[in-house]
């Protein structure tokens, strides 16, 4: 008993230390975002006990065009997530349930293009914008994010569709359901957790992405990560403001983490463990 108590104690101490390491840099950002410039310039780290100020947030929220950037980020992330789930969901359904010529080819090529590096897309995307004249349009960014996210979403949703017993659909068909009814009334309700996982991952990528956003947006179509990077200028680095911006950017992903950690882990392990 004593031994197992010691083991447990070790277990918790180790976990607490690791949790501290994982959280410390994030906390440094949050703490710094509430410091005035004098405190920021102080080389002695202040973790908790200082007089907090909201002036960095005040600056970030009112001086720049934060509202516009936030709106752009929300529009691009939400619309590419919706599109990815819609198109990817149909595609995954067909791959999992319907038999057709080219199914295996489609499945394999989807998996192959999953890893196309954003750096490879950079020059062609830039060229496309230059040649087509469709410049600084959020629709272009949304399109690329949807394309980037589709392979992973299809892969993930395919696995979830496969877990649903076919008999359910067959029963519905016997009862006279149309294909669309089968899809929306029978399958979708059983797929909510699958779609939740796919939504979180798609949203996170679109919300955090930087390179394509930098290349494809202009002054008024900038997304938040591009705006945050823009705070680093040659004239000086305002760490308090940068950290306030960073904190605002990580709020939605952290929010998801707290409410859907289980789904996120399911999505991360799906690639390795289920395969």
């Amino acid at each position: 008993m004593n031994d197992s108590f010691q083991r447990q104690l070790f277990h918790y101490v180790a976990l607490l230390m690791l949790a501290g390491l994982a959280l410390a840099p994030i906390w440094v950002m949050i703490a710094t975002s509430f410091k005035n410039p004098v405190l920021v310039q102080d080389a002695k780290p202040l973790w908790f006990f200082f007089v907090p100020t909201l002036e960095n947030y005040g600056y970030v929220l009112t001086r720049g065009k934060f509202g516009t950037y936030l709106g752009n980020s929300v529009i691009v992330a939400v619309s590419s997530t919706v599109l990815t789930l819609l198109l990817g969901g149909f595609c995954a359904y067909a791959l999992a349930r319907l038999d057709f010529r080219g199914r295996v080819l489609m499945a394999n090529s989807t998996l192959m293009v999953r890893m196309v590096p954003p750096a490879v897309l950079a020059v062609p995307a830039f060229a496309f914008v230059m040649l087509s004249g469709v410049d600084q349009d959020l629709a272009v960014l949304t399109f690329f994010y949807t394309a980037l996210n589709l392979p992973f979403a299809i892969w993930l949703l395919f696995g979830f569709y496969k877990q649903i017993p076919v008999e359910l659909e067959e029963a519905a068909v016997v009862d006279g359901a149309t294909p669309l009814q089968v899809f929306f009334r029978v399958l979708l309700p059983l797929m909510t957790s699958g779609y939740a996982v796919a939504a979180i991952f798609t949203f996170r990528i679109a919300w955090n992405e930087f390179i394509l956003a930098l290349l494809l947006t202009g002054r008024s179509t900038r997304t938040l990560p591009v705006a945050a990077a823009g705070f680093i200028t040659d004239t000086g680095v305002e760490w308090g403001r940068i950290m306030a911006m960073g904190t605002l950017i990580v709020i939605p992903p952290l929010f998801f983490t707290f409410f859907a950690a289980r789904q996120i882990i399911a999505g991360m392990t799906a690639g390795a463990v289920k395969g």
């Binding site: 994982a22 959280l23 840099p25 950002m29 955090n208 950290m243 950017i249 882990i265 991360m268």
Partner: peptide, 26 residues
């Protein structure tokens, strides 16, 4: 365990740009 697991995935959820900014500061 689930609390700890939630904490451990936090670094993975932070935008790479923000990760870069945080560590550049550190």
């Amino acid at each position: 365990a689930s609390v700890f697991r939630t904490i451990f995935i936090l670094p993975l959820m932070v935008s790479p740009v923000v990760v870069g900014l945080i560590w550049r500061y550190l």
